[in-house]
Amino acid sequence: MSTGNFLYGVAMLLFLIGFYTVLARPSLIKKIIGINIMETSVFLFLISVGSRRGGSAPIILSGVKDYVNPLPQVVVLMAMVIAVGTTALALSMAVKIFESSGAGERRG
């Protein structure tokens, strides 16, 4: 592939978009979406670090020589499942805050 370091830059931009959401948007739900975007950008970075020119998916077949790096895929797979857990935890906190104070947004 001749993409160069193109995907690293994309991961950086997505990270900044997510970071902006967490910093500047008032709604708690929007902040949690921002955390999710940041997570995906880190996943994209890890997978593009492990990619390999002309490599195929890491499922062993006879006659295929080059495979992409399977180790980042394992790490990202685990992180994806954990991301659901942390997202649900953050959402339940947001729901509790809304129900106890009637405020779904940060004040001030």
Partner: peptide, 25 residues
């Protein structure tokens, strides 16, 4: 990028479960 394992997981987790959790919240 050569990660069909992650593609399957992302379709089920990112587009499925996470969005449902967000909608409910």
């Amino acid at each position: 990028l050569g990660a069909p394992v992650l593609a399957l997981a992302e379709v089920a987790i990112g587009a499925g479960v996470t969005v449902v959790l967000f909608v409910v919240a």
